[in-house]
């Protein structure tokens, strides 16, 4: 709604502008300004387009051609050979499956837990709730490096090193911080009368949460899903620490990092693996982009 009023106002302003008689110099200044604006926009488009297009183009060139003419050469035949190659020879498929096996449970658990804590804090208002919230939200500020040594010792004693469990558990728990923050703020905005009305109708607190509140929270949940999936999918620190000994439990980001470290692996191969690794997060962002912005703001602003 505010968008439409803004554009209406802009329209009105424009019309007001055009009623002012144009003098020669005024027009020239305006044309100059518009030209400068165009140049700025062109520079900025190039700045963002070139790196992205560079990876895509490199992934579609043969390694021989890149070796001969350089990465950024504009010429060359395009081929899917690198993709076929990466898909069939390297452990790519295994890496992708591993990444999904970490990301999906961790996204679900972190959002479920954050929603439960956030709802309880906002609606049940237990004694000590503020302190609980403070501790959980402080998790946002703990650098991962603080946790590495204790967690390493812990996972080793449970014999979980070189499995996917460390990543699933860590991302679930660490994710509670942002999910609790966003969901508490979300439920805080929902009037209590809604809950009381349902309770008077005979629903239990659990039913109110599940049947009334959760459906309302769908946009916030979608935003968190986008945020959490991207964050977990793109992480490579925990896999690097906890699964470095076995290639078959590596996630796609660790696989990509390892390939990058090997100088024998050609650029075309690296680029196609990078594109494959990026597809899931880019796709999710395209689908959920509107929710993402709203969710991020609702979580961050109302605190």
């Amino acid at each position: 709604m505010s968008t439409s009023t803004a554009s209406l106002a802009a329209d009105r302003a424009e019309r007001a502008d055009s009623t002012v008689p144009e003098h020669g110099t005024g027009r020239r200044v305006r044309t100059l300004r518009r030209r400068a604006g165009m140049v700025l926009i062109a520079v900025f488009v190039a700045l963002y387009l070139v790196p992205v297009a560079g990876v895509l183009a490199t992934s579609l060139k043969t390694n021989a051609e890149i070796a001969e003419r350089g990465i950024w050469a504009l010429t060359g035949r395009l081929t899917l050979a690198n993709y076929v190659d990466v898909w069939s020879t390297a452990n790519t498929v295994r890496y992708l499956i591993n990444s999904f096996q970490v990301a999906i449970p961790a996204v679900v658990v972190s959002i479920a837990g954050g929603t439960l804590i956030g709802y309880a804090l906002a609606k049940f208002r237990p004694r000590g709730g503020t302190a609980i919230q403070l501790v959980i939200v402080s998790g946002l500020f703990v650098p991962p490096q603080v946790l590495l040594v204790p967690l390493f010792t812990m996972f080793r004693s449970f014999d979980l090193l070189n499995t996917l469990w460390p990543m699933i558990l860590i991302h679930s728990a660490v994710g509670f911080s942002v999910c609790t923050l966003v969901m508490r703020n979300f439920f805080e905005q929902i009037p209590d009368s809604l809950r009381y009305a349902a309770l008077i109708d005979g629903a239990s607190e659990g039913e109110v949460f599940w049947r009334v509140m959760l459906p309302l929270a769908r946009p916030a949940l979608a935003a968190l899903a986008t945020l959490q999936f991207t964050f977990i999918w793109n992480d490579f620190l925990y896999p690097l620490v906890f699964t470095s000994a076995r290639d078959d439990v590596a996630t796609i980001m660790l696989g990509l990092l390892n390939v990058k470290g090997q100088f024998t692996v050609a650029y075309g191969t690296q680029a196609s693996l990078a594109v494959i690794a990026s597809i899931p997060t880019v796709a999710i962002f395209f689908v959920f982009q509107k929710h993402f912005v709203r969710g991020l703001l609702s979580g961050a602003l109302k605190e």
């Binding site: 439960l116 804590i117 959980i136 603080v146 040594v149 812990m154």
Partner: peptide
């Protein structure tokens, strides 16, 4: 409501304590 709060928050808080709070204290 306190009972409900414990039921809702208990399990995730336990996991958070094990993975974030205790390791931070250990660090």
């Amino acid at each position: 409501t306190t009972r409900w709060a414990i039921l809702f928050m208990g399990p995730p808080i336990l996991l958070f304590t094990a993975i974030v709070v205790v390791p931070t204290a250990m660090a």
